[in-house]
């Protein structure tokens, strides 16, 4: 009951039916220094009646299949991306005449690598597209965060008729396929003359991200201790004060996880960009340009590989830097459709 110190209960935990610990809580942490997990990693020699001493070697052998399986899967899962990474630095001719793994025949031969592919693909519109992706993704992340956090605060802590109904509708909208909305919105955009503008995709992405954002944040904000909000009210805080000085700082973990989720989603999106931006190359994001390269110049492997890698740069950086928030968002928002 000492809410004074404890962070609010992570609402993410409740939803998924019982995960108690966040496995990715701290990717940097040395697993060996993590005492709570240690027991599960020990081989368990403590069967009553079957107890026998095991040497280190026996223990290693007993776990060998596990090590083999885990390493094999990890390698298998990394190989495709790794192949692309290597390929993107190979000269166009080499790319189409030999497999990327052949570079390991002479691994120290640095002349077989080049940055030329990147220069070419940047010139072919990828540079502009990269900027466009940023212009699309940042506001399309910030806008729904602001709107969803305000709404979540009202839904969790303010009393007004219909708030439960609004939230239930939001939960329902979580899985509505956005395909349902494409035709009417595109038509409305055409009438309004805002198709092929950033505003069009910002608002569309904001709206499509809202159900998840409201759902996630409302659950988190709703689990903040009531006392804190009342204490602030007694201390003289207005609703906006409570929001900016108590709710937002305390909800940062949830806001961050939604931010990562939404940013990756927007950056990686093809459908919304394809439909609402049409063929306008001036505003096309990396996914759209990459898709066009696949369509028009599908045999130019040097463009494909370097282009794909440029498109993956930002999301991968975000992923590695903010993995734990991403996981938390997943744990909480795994009902998103």
């Amino acid at each position: 009951m000492n809410t004074g110190n404890s962070q609010p209960v992570d609402p993410t935990v409740r939803k998924t039916g019982g995960p108690q610990k966040d496995p990715q809580k701290d990717p940097q942490k040395d697993p060996q220094k993590d005492p709570p997990k240690a027991p599960s990693k020990e081989p368990r020699p403590s069967y009553v009646g079957k107890r026998k001493e095991q040497s280190n070697f026996d223990r290693l052998m007993a776990k060998a299949p596990v090590h083999f399986a885990v390493i094999a899967i990890a390698v298998l899962w990394t190989l495709p991306t790794f192949g692309l990474f290597i390929s993107s630095f190979r000269p166009p001719d080499a790319l189409v005449t030999s497999g990327w793994w052949t570079v390991f025949l002479n691994p120290l031969e640095f002349t077989q690598f080049t940055l030329g592919n990147y220069q070419e693909v940047l010139a072919a519109g990828m540079g502009q597209a990269f900027l466009n992706s940023l212009v699309i993704s940042v506001p399309a992340t910030v806008i729904p965060i602001a709107i969803a956090t305000f709404a979540a605060y009202a839904l969790a802590w303010m009393d007004f008729p219909g708030r439960q109904a609004i939230f239930i509708v939001t939960v329902g909208l979580l899985v509505v396929p956005l395909q349902m909305t494409l035709i009417p919105i595109l038509r409305a955009y055409n009438v309004l003359g805002i198709s092929s503008t950033f505003l069009a995709v910002w608002l569309a992405h904001a709206a499509y991200g809202l159900p998840l954002g409201v759902y996630l944040l409302r659950n988190y904000i709703g689990s903040l201790p009531r006392d804190l909000i009342e204490a602030a009210a007694v201390d003289g805080a207005s609703y906006l004060n409570v929001f900016t000085r108590i709710i937002v700082p305390l909800s940062m973990p949830a806001i961050a996880s939604f931010a990562v989720f939404q940013f990756l989603w927007v950056w990686n999106d093809l459908l919304v960009a394809l439909v609402y931006l049409g063929g306008n190359q001036d505003v096309a994001p990396v996914t759209l340009v990459l898709r066009n390269i696949v369509g028009d110049r599908g045999q130019d492997w040097f463009l494909l590989t370097s282009g794909a890698f440029i498109s993956m740069l930002v999301p991968m950086a975000v992923f590695f830097a903010l993995q734990r928030y991403f996981v938390r968002g997943l744990l909480a928002g795994s009902v998103k459709g």
């Binding site: 809410t3 004074g4 110190n5 006392d227 108590i246």
Partner: peptide, 20 residues
């Protein structure tokens, strides 16, 4: 009158200290 205008202070059972 809203709480903030009543000139009162309250100590909560949980203390309700702002953790941040």
């Amino acid at each position: 009158v809203t709480p903030k205008d009543r000139d009162i202070a309250m100590v909560f059972q949980s203390y309700a200290l702002y953790p941040h």
